[in-house]
């Protein structure tokens, strides 16, 4: 196995609130090699966005927040760097794309300036050189008439075009790692497909690693090499994409897959649901966090946090599951998607 580009070890992000400590990310370890795409899937409150931001270094220890564990990006410990040094990572090493392209662009700044700025600041390009590169980047992300578009304001572009601009800005310095936090949730399905295809093709072309964070298992499915499923701030399952969809081993992953309506199912079929509510992050249940909602749970599940163990056969890709009573390897689930 090659040296991973991203190596996250026992990462914990804790917010200190008046209601008590909220363990948003609670002991997550993962690695990602260059050129690979990792999908991080979870429902709201699972800690997936905080994980992305902590990996990026946007969330770091300070008033009200404690980050422990280690995030190593191309050999550098992100959280051991001084803020000014960490800022130098953003752009050339790691970049992030957020959910809502309207709020991540400045409404009173022309589209081109968002990208010029990145190039001039990080790569010390001159005004004219930066603009040339900007137009090239806009063309690369599939924006028609890039010269004209660069002179427009964000509100003159559609949601899909705006998200392309955000991606162009993120790619401006050729980052090794792109963290995309729900990049298509605010967009229409046909546009969602275009944007995910775009990220996939850019990653293929430049060897950029991608962390794709989403609440939608199916959206991530077609694009990721591996999928990590989060629940209550912890990883519950991490496996090659086809294994997660074809033979999930954690009961939560299985239930999540089953609860999405399928196109192939007959109309009016009842959907299997997950009873109860996600755990309160300020007061999580002891032991396995999914135990109170899990139909398979037994006394042993409430005892202590189940470790993330590799259940894959020897020599296979790791299939890690944090469950004491995992689902059988031969599951009835076939294929992925709906």
């Amino acid at each position: 196995m090659s040296e991973p580009l991203l190596d996250v070890e026992d990462l914990r992000t804790t917010f200190h609130t008046p209601r008590g400590d909220v363990h948003a990310v609670d002991g997550v370890s993962l690695r990602l090699e260059a050129g690979r795409t990792l999908g991080v899937v979870g429902e709201s409150g699972s800690g997936k966005s905080v994980l992305g931001r902590t990996v990026m270094g946007l969330v770091s220890s300070g008033p009200g927040v404690t980050v422990s564990g280690r995030v190593s990006l191309a050999g550098q410990d992100v959280h051991a760097l001084a803020p000014a040094e960490r800022r130098r990572l953003w752009g050339p090493r790691v970049a992030m794309v957020f959910q809502d392209p309207m709020t991540s662009l400045n409404p009173v700044k022309r589209v081109g300036r968002h990208i010029d700025e990145v190039l001039r600041l990080h790569l010390r390009l001159g005004r004219r050189e930066a603009r040339e590169r900007t137009v090239g980047l806009l063309r690369q992300v599939g924006i028609p008439e890039p010269e004209r578009r660069a002179g427009q304001y964000p509100h003159e572009l559609s949601g899909g075009m705006r998200q392309r601009v955000v991606i162009a800005a993120a790619l401006a310095c050729g980052p090794d790692l792109l963290i995309a936090d729900e990049p298509t949730t605010a967009l229409d399905v046909t546009v969602q497909r275009q944007i995910l295809d775009l990220v996939a093709s850019l990653s293929r072309r430049s060897g950029m690693a991608v962390v794709l964070i989403s609440h939608d298992l199916a959206a991530v499915g077609g694009r990721a090499d591996r999928v990590a499923v989060m629940y209550g701030g912890r990883l519950v399952e991490s496996a090659p994409t086809s294994r997660v969809f074809g033979a999930p081993r954690h009961p939560y992953t299985g239930a999540l897959l089953a609860s999405a309506p399928r196109l192939s199912a007959a109309p009016h079929s009842r959907l299997p649901t997950i009873e109860g509510r996600p755990p309160d992050p300020a007061d999580p249940p002891p032991g396995c966090r999914f135990a109170p909602r899990c139909p398979r749970a037994e006394a042993v599940c409430r005892g202590g946090a189940p470790p993330l163990l590799d259940l894959a056969p020897v020599g296979g890709h790791p299939h890690e599951v944090a469950c004491r009573l995992p689902l059988e390897a031969e599951s009835t689930e076939v294929g992925h998607g709906r």
Binding site: V189, G221, G222, L263
Partner: peptide, 11 residues
């Protein structure tokens, strides 16, 4: 058809 082909997992 375009909508159906855009459903994730149905590409």
């Amino acid at each position: 058809r375009l909508l159906l082909d855009s459903v994730p997992g149905q590409e």
